[in-house]
Simulated scan of single mutants.
Amino acid sequence: MLIGFKTEVKCNNKQKTLFFKHAGTARHAWNWGLGLTKQILDHNKDNLENKIKFPTAIDLHKWLVALVKPDNPWYYEVSKCAPQYALRDLRTAWDRSFKKIAKPPRFKKKGNGDSFTLDGSIEVIDHYKVKIPRIGIIRTYERLPFGVKPKSVTISLQADKWFISWKIEVETTQTPKSVDVVGIDLGVLKLATLSTGKVFEGEKSYKKYEKKLSRLQWLNRHKVIGSNNWRKAQVKITRLHRHIANIRKDTLHKLTTYLAKNHSKIVVEDLNVSGMLANRKLAKAVADMGFYEFRRQLEYKCKLYGSELIIADRWFPSSKLCSSCGVVKETLSLSDRVFNCECGVSLDRDLNASINLAHLAAS
């Protein structure tokens, strides 16, 4: 199966300049293509009889070469792959929007998610060097998977650091499992409660650094936008955001790897994360835990380590159902942290829910 590999790049000033040029060209191509496609959609709304066929990624690239490149000679200073992949990603974004999977694509702003994709004769020279067309040899801090020939690589900017990523082929492994079935109840107070009795606390990285982040944003409020001091403050804020996200990802990676390696069947609820984020009282705590990222990691790691992932129905009453007698309570408020049943069972609310999820897999 294919998994992503991403690591930080050790680049000099010349390479940084090339990175910024490629990212700027890709952003320009995206914004030009987005503006053109929006004009076509507006034209088709007003002229139902004389509709224009919505362009493919190939059509957009042909028009870019004919209409944009002659007026912008700096396009020839970078690889042709950067605008080509940007238009391909734009068409994919429109397809997702037409299928109601995601919102329509938006215009990109300089310094916000700068990235570009290149392909061609890419080669991993040794454990710390990658050769890329039009850029040359790039060094990395982390040891690379040697002997791999990526078809394409994506280079992205996060705060003041550049990262390179590509997909690698790995073989699935059947690790020995110590537990047959485990139910997992995700929560805001505790990240995960297992039916085996284990509890994993969330790092709550945003809550930990919220005051520091607020302080940095407060200090930046009166700086002149575009000035050197404003740019320095923006880098500090982005660094802290990256640090918060890395802590959250590290916690989730450790938890999902442990679950996939040591359990044959894993049962989780199909949580309505977007609906939970709409609740202004819970949104910050839910986002700090990273429920969507937890499920995304668990899905591919179960395939990687030979485990089975079972998604319980969204309306399954895991919290209201008694794990002993099977009676469903009519009401159960969020403040009730202990589940008490008439049959005499009294146990933690999250543990009761995780046991019910485990029973669901057995049935």
Results as ranks from 00 to 15, higher is better:
G4F: 10
K6L: 02
E8R: 15
E8M: 11
V9R: 08
C11E: 15
N12C: 13
K14G: 05
L18D: 08
F19R: 07
A26W: 05
A26R: 08
H28W: 04
A29F: 00
N31H: 06
W32S: 01
I40N: 00
K51F: 02
P55A: 01
P55Y: 01
I58F: 06
D59A: 06
V65Y: 02
V68R: 03
Y75C: 10
Y75D: 04
C81W: 09
Q84F: 03
D95T: 14
R96P: 00
K99S: 12
I101S: 08
K103C: 06
P104H: 13
K109S: 09
K110I: 04
D114G: 10
L118V: 13
L118A: 05
D119E: 14
D119M: 11
G120P: 00
V130M: 11
P133A: 00
P133Y: 00
R139Y: 13
R139D: 13
Y141V: 13
L144V: 09
S152M: 12
T154H: 05
D160G: 05
K161W: 03
F163E: 11
E169K: 14
T173I: 15
P176W: 02
S178L: 04
D180E: 12
V182T: 08
D185K: 07
D185M: 07
E203C: 02
K204L: 02
K207E: 04
E210L: 05
K212F: 00
L219Q: 15
N220V: 03
N220Y: 02
N220F: 01
R221T: 08
R221D: 07
H222M: 05
H222K: 15
S227L: 04
K232H: 07
V235F: 00
K236L: 15
H241I: 11
H243G: 13
N246V: 04
N246W: 01
R248N: 09
H253C: 05
K254A: 07
T257P: 04
K261V: 09
K265M: 03
V273M: 11
S274I: 12
K281R: 15
A285T: 11
D288S: 04
G290H: 09
E293D: 14
L298P: 06
E299N: 09
Y300T: 03
K301W: 03
Y305A: 05
I311V: 12
P317Y: 04
C325K: 01
V338K: 07
C343W: 01
A362Y: 06
A362E: 14
